[in-house]
Simulated scan of single mutants.
Amino acid sequence: MKKDFSEALGRHEQRFGQAGLAFAAPARVNLIGEHTDYTGGLVMPMAIGFHTVATIGPREDGRAVFHSENFDEEASYEIASLDSKPEGRWSDYPAGVVWSLRQEGVRIDGFNMTLSGDVPVGAGLSSSASVEVATAMAVLGRAHFALDLKAVASLCRRAENEYVGAKSGIMDQFVVAGGVAQRAMLLDCRSLEFELLPLPAGVRVVIANSMVRHDHATGGYGDRRDEVETGQAVLQRERGIELLRDATLADLEACREKMPAVSYARCRHIITENGRVLEAREALLQGDVKRFGELMVAAHASMRDDFEASCSEVDMIVEIALRQPGCFGARITGGGFGGCTVNLVDVTKTGEFVAAVRSEYRAATGIEADCFVCEASDGALALAKDGTA
Score class of each variant (00 low, 15 high):
55 T>R: 03
21 L>K: 15
51 H>V: 12
71 F>P: 01
70 N>T: 14
75 A>Y: 09
45 P>F: 06
60 E>A: 15
36 T>A: 08
54 A>G: 10
37 D>M: 06
57 G>N: 05
52 T>G: 04
40 G>K: 04
49 G>E: 11
30 N>S: 11
29 V>A: 02
67 H>K: 06
54 A>C: 06
47 A>Q: 01
37 D>N: 09
30 N>D: 02
73 E>W: 10
17 G>T: 06
21 L>V: 13
26 P>F: 12
29 V>K: 00
21 L>M: 14
71 F>G: 01
50 F>A: 03
36 T>D: 02
32 I>E: 01
42 L>P: 00
73 E>R: 15
23 F>Q: 11
43 V>G: 00
27 A>T: 05
33 G>Q: 05
71 F>C: 00
67 H>D: 12
35 H>L: 03
32 I>S: 02
56 I>Y: 00
45 P>H: 06
22 A>V: 15
36 T>L: 07
34 E>L: 12
75 A>N: 06
32 I>Y: 04
77 Y>F: 15
64 A>Y: 04
72 D>E: 14
38 Y>V: 09
18 Q>G: 12
39 T>E: 08
67 H>G: 02
77 Y>N: 02
51 H>W: 14
30 N>G: 09
43 V>C: 05
28 R>C: 11
63 R>N: 08
24 A>K: 02
23 F>D: 09
17 G>H: 00
74 E>L: 09
46 M>N: 00
77 Y>S: 05
54 A>M: 05
39 T>F: 07
26 P>K: 13
17 G>I: 09
19 A>V: 12
58 P>C: 11
34 E>M: 07
62 G>M: 05
68 S>G: 12
36 T>W: 01
50 F>L: 08
40 G>M: 09
76 S>C: 14
21 L>D: 10
67 H>V: 15
60 E>R: 12
49 G>P: 02
58 P>Y: 10
